[in-house]
């Protein structure tokens, strides 16, 4: 498969058309993803504007430090993904593999941090449906906050997990020297996906961790 002419699938006329098609396909897929998350962001917006006080109180139960750390981790991971695409474009196989591995490691680190946070919330009794024992102010709306928090971060985490699987496959294929400067579309479009996943978190972090923290129970 190292030969890029072999990588041309029969339905395409030439490599440029194939690359164009793949990239456009990924952008359209990302549009789908935006609407997918959009449904949840819409719920969040409606409830946040209906119950600003309860949501402010509830956000105090999240660890802003860990949220910030995972944001940095994910941004770095996105940076290394960009480096991977660059290495693929310029044909540095070793750099490509190395950057991909770094991206994966940071992604795993993000998941570890997020899962520890989930675990702490579970222990605190703030996980609706599993263990929810909050008895403070406005418990109904606080529960709503955590429902949305787990639903949205959960959906995001599942995207991170899928991303990790894709990146691992890419890393193996890169190691096998599949990609050349003439054919590295898979790396490029996986990069697009990875940046999108990063971007979703950039929205999630302030919406859940930062807004209205001054409201106290």
């Amino acid at each position: 498969m190292a030969n890029h002419s072999l990588a041309l699938r029969h339905q395409f006329e030439d490599v440029a058309q194939q690359k164009d098609a793949s990239t456009l396909g990924m952008w359209i897929f990302l549009a789908t993803e935006i609407l997918f998350f959009g449904g949840m962001f819409c719920c969040y917006t409606v409830y946040r504007s209906s119950y600003p006080h309860a949501f402010g109180i509830a956000s105090n139960h999240l660890e802003v430090l860990w949220g910030a750390v995972s944001t940095v981790v994910l941004i770095c991971s996105s940076y290394f993904m960009a480096c991977s695409v660059n290495s693929a474009a310029t044909g540095y196989r070793k750099a490509l593999v190395g950057f991909l591995v770094l991206t994966i490691l940071l992604a795993v680190a993000f998941l570890v941090i997020e899962m520890s946070e989930w675990y702490l919330l579970y222990k605190e009794g703030l996980m609706p449906g599993v263990n929810f024992t909050y008895k403070g102010i406005d418990p109904g709306h606080v529960q709503l906050f955590f429902c949305m928090y787990f639903a949205m971060t959960g959906l995001h985490a599942s995207h991170v997990t899928i991303g990790i699987v894709i990146l691992i496959i890419l890393a193996f294929r890169a190691y096998a020297d599949v990609f050349t400067p003439a054919y590295y579309t898979p790396v490029e479009i996986s990069g697009l996906y990875w940046h999108f996943v990063d971007l979703v978190w950039i929205f999630l972090f302030p919406l859940y961790y930062l807004i209205a923290r001054h409201l106290q129970g």
């Binding site: 998350f37 449904g39 949840m40 719920c43 409830y47 449906g129 109904g140 529960q143």
Partner: peptide, 30 residues
């Protein structure tokens, strides 16, 4: 492409709510 993901996520929330009694659409919780 633009409409289907919204119903997908909505049905996902319904399934989650039914499975775990989360309360995202439950009037008792607001």
């Amino acid at each position: 492409v633009l409409g289907t993901p919204v119903i997908a996520v909505t049905l996902l929330l319904v399934a989650l709510e039914r499975g775990f009694h989360l309360g995202i659409f439950d009037p008792a919780l607001g």
